[in-house]
Simulated scan of single mutants.
Amino acid sequence: MTLRSVDLRTEPVEAVLNRVERSLGVRLNQEPVVRKRRSLGARTDRDTWVRIERRGLDRIGVQGGDGTASAEALRGIAKPAWLAGIAWRDEMERVMWQADETELLPGAPVSGAVVTEDPRLSEEWWAAMNASLDALAAQHTNRIATPDTETLTQELVAGTIHRAFAGIDTTVVEWHPAHADFNWANMTAPVFCVFDWEDWGMAPRGLDAANLWGASLVVPALASRVRTERRVDLESRDGKLMTLFVAAKILGPYADPDDPRLGAARETAEQVVKELQAS
């Protein structure tokens, strides 16, 4: 059975919201509901937040759909506490719905996933981001990261990079826990907090830093700041591979010719390719 393509920004969702209210014993503020392509979010009457995700069973993998709940075991990371959750299989389609209730965020998201202007973040913000990423990388998990809902394997790394950059040895050596969707829409300011943990798991070193770099390219000074702050990760061999992994998604066969990040991504990627070939 082919899974129906659904965009929750336009799909009727009243039945889903009502089911979540009954199951979690909350009342959702349905005006407004934050709607994304495959997730919904709303504040509750007990001053918490509920995020609801729709994911095909073929994109759940062996680790299940409990990313946000399992992230509660992580320590030393600025993130909202997980409070409760429910999951159910859709009666009509090969789809799982997952709803997680968490603490409210300490601020608004920095921007959309790709930033278009300098958010002017404080030194305290950068320090908190670094501390959280360092703490995350030092922990242990059996989960495997699922960026863009795809299980992150050595084969996926090689296939993605080689679509844009041929002749690169893509063998990953270091794997560490990563958020795997580390972009400006999933972090708050002025107080740093990272949320939406559904895809976290083991990933090549530098994935989160490379993702944030790729999401910053429209603002050159910000992209440079990201690379400076996460230099140790991004200058490692695996970090360079993750830079190409992210760049390949921008520059590869499905590139958007109007993407304002193209030039900056290509310039950095060409330099990284030279460094890898020389090593």
Rank of each mutant, 00 (worst) to 15 (best):
T2M: 13
L3V: 14
R4G: 00
R4I: 13
L8C: 02
T10P: 00
E11K: 06
V13M: 06
V13R: 01
E14A: 15
L24P: 01
R27M: 06
R27H: 09
N29P: 00
N29K: 13
Q30W: 07
V34K: 10
R35M: 05
K36F: 01
R37T: 11
R38T: 13
D47S: 14
T48K: 04
V50K: 05
R51D: 05
I52A: 03
I52C: 03
R54K: 13
R55S: 08
R55Q: 12
G56Y: 09
R59F: 12
V62A: 14
G65I: 15
D66A: 07
A69M: 10
A73K: 14
R75Q: 15
A78F: 13
K79M: 12
W82C: 03
A87E: 15
R89K: 13
D90T: 09
V95I: 15
W97K: 00
D100T: 10
T102Y: 03
E103H: 04
L104A: 01
L105E: 02
A108N: 12
P109I: 09
S111G: 10
V114F: 12
V114P: 00
V114I: 13
D118T: 00
D118G: 00
P119N: 07
R120M: 11
E124W: 06
E124T: 13
W125V: 07
W126C: 04
A127K: 14
M129R: 12
M129V: 08
L133V: 11
L133I: 11
T141D: 04
N142M: 10
N142T: 15
R143A: 04
P147G: 02
D148Q: 08
T149A: 11
E150K: 14
T151A: 07
T151F: 08
T153F: 07
Q154D: 14
A158D: 11
T160H: 06
I161C: 06
I161F: 10
H162A: 05
H162M: 07
D169M: 08
T170G: 01
V173N: 11
E174L: 11
W175P: 04
H176T: 14
A180T: 08
A180Y: 06
F182C: 10
A185S: 14
A185T: 02
T188K: 04
P190Y: 09
V191L: 11
F195S: 03
F195Q: 02
D196S: 09
D196H: 06
D199W: 14
W200M: 06
A203S: 08
P204R: 02
L207D: 02
A209I: 07
N211R: 14
W213Q: 03
G214W: 07
L217A: 01
P220V: 07
R227W: 07
R227D: 07
D233Y: 05
D233I: 00
D233V: 03
E235F: 06
D238I: 06
D238T: 08
L244P: 07
F245G: 01
F245S: 00
L251T: 05
A255H: 08
D256I: 07
P257A: 09
D259P: 01
R261W: 03
E267A: 15
E267D: 13
T268F: 07
A269G: 03
A269L: 05
Q271V: 14
V273G: 00
L276V: 09
